[in-house]
Amino acid sequence: MSKPLKIKLHVNGVARELVIEPRVTLLDALREHLNLTGSKKGCDQGQCGACTVHVDGERVLACLTLAAQVEGREITTVEGLTPDGAELHPVQAAFLKHDAFQCGYCTPGQIMSAVACIREGHASSDAEIREYMSGNLCRCGAYPHIVAAVREAREALS
């Protein structure tokens, strides 16, 4: 076991201090140390996308990122998409409207990925949405509804 590190993470606009082993991933830091359990642990090896969060606005996999690596960066999780008490983010609203999930486990990752996908300008057609959302697996197979939700959210946000 290695010496614990004291790091400061900026999560959803709040500076949080934590003492962790350097091997702790961002996903474990969020879930186990900061009690932010919205980001899900699906495969824990970078294949499913359930742990997708934003680092400085870019979507990344929290399970492959060491928490220590993103010290000082701006981290956004599904809990921080909208300010406390605010209405749903347009992507969240579109997922509800289109019933874009079944079990819901992949949904926070899908939503974080979709927000970035639209912001990147990679949601101009259904084919493009499918390609640029391909890093988020849904084992319930809600894909057609997810594409519909992303399409509607893109229109709402443009």
Partner: peptide
Amino acid sequence: VGSIQIQNR
């Protein structure tokens, strides 16, 4: 190379 999330890192 993997997904966009992978390509970003």
